[in-house]
Amino acid sequence: MERQVERLENTLQPLHESDKTDADIPITFDQVKMILADFKLAHPHIKFDINEFSTIEIPINESDFTTIIVNLMNNSIKYGATHLSVSISTNKNLFEIQVRDNGIGMALKEIPHIFEKFYRIQKNNIHDSKGLGLGLYLVNTIVGRHQGKIDVTSKINIGTTFNIIIPHE
């Protein structure tokens, strides 16, 4: 419970300190495994596929990584996913995160707007899920701060895939 409270406090930090980063303190493999294990424990009804990643270099800090991965996984579940596939890897000088789900997906016209602050997908002019519309905004802000990019593919009733690529030395 203490880790979850700390995670929530860290998640809100980018709203107050958008210029401050702890980029010189990279997240460790053990921290990544603990974040994913905590998430799996909190969602026992979700099937998880997570690649083995013990030899990769992770060039971002714990707060940024947690904000990215937890927001993407929470959104997947919020929008109907029962199966999540998480991949973390490096390729040359690129750090990559992929979160793929089997949720309800989204229309192509929604994708350009999902990273806007307070934007939430509506159905029949009603918000069907809880949230403030800040999660993907924060993810995009963090990825941009690390000179990375996000690619989103989605198909209605099939699912959504987020690919994040962050360059590193």
Rank of each mutant, 00 (worst) to 15 (best):
L15F: 13
H16D: 15
H16V: 08
E17N: 15
D19L: 08
D19T: 11
D19S: 12
K20F: 03
K20M: 06
T21S: 05
T21A: 04
T21D: 09
D22W: 05
A23I: 13
A23F: 00
A23T: 14
A23K: 08
A23P: 01
D24C: 04
D24P: 05
D24L: 12
I25S: 14
I25L: 13
I25D: 10
T28F: 01
F29E: 14
D30V: 12
Q31M: 10
V32A: 02
V32R: 00
K33S: 11
K33C: 05
M34V: 13
M34N: 13
I35F: 11
L36M: 10
L36S: 14
F39R: 02
F39P: 13
K40W: 11
K40C: 07
K40M: 15
K40T: 12
L41Y: 14
A42G: 08
A42P: 14
H43Q: 12
P44R: 08
I46V: 15
D49L: 11
I50T: 06
E52Y: 03
F53Y: 05
S54Y: 05
S54V: 08
S54I: 12
T55L: 07
T55I: 15
I56L: 06
I56M: 04
E57W: 05
E57K: 03
I58W: 04
P59F: 14
I60L: 06
S63I: 07
T66P: 08
V70S: 07
V70G: 07
N71D: 09
L72K: 02
M73R: 12
N74Y: 03
N74S: 13
K78S: 12
Y79D: 10
G80V: 05
T82M: 12
H83N: 10
L84Q: 07
S85C: 11
S85V: 04
V86F: 03
V86Y: 03
S87V: 07
I88H: 06
S89Q: 02
S89E: 00
T90K: 01
N91Q: 13
K92H: 03
N93E: 02
N93H: 11
L94H: 00
F95Y: 01
E96Y: 00
I97W: 03
I97E: 02
V99G: 01
D101W: 07
N102M: 02
G103T: 11
I104S: 06
G105N: 04
K109Q: 15
E110C: 06
I111P: 13
I111E: 10
I111M: 09
P112S: 10
I114K: 03
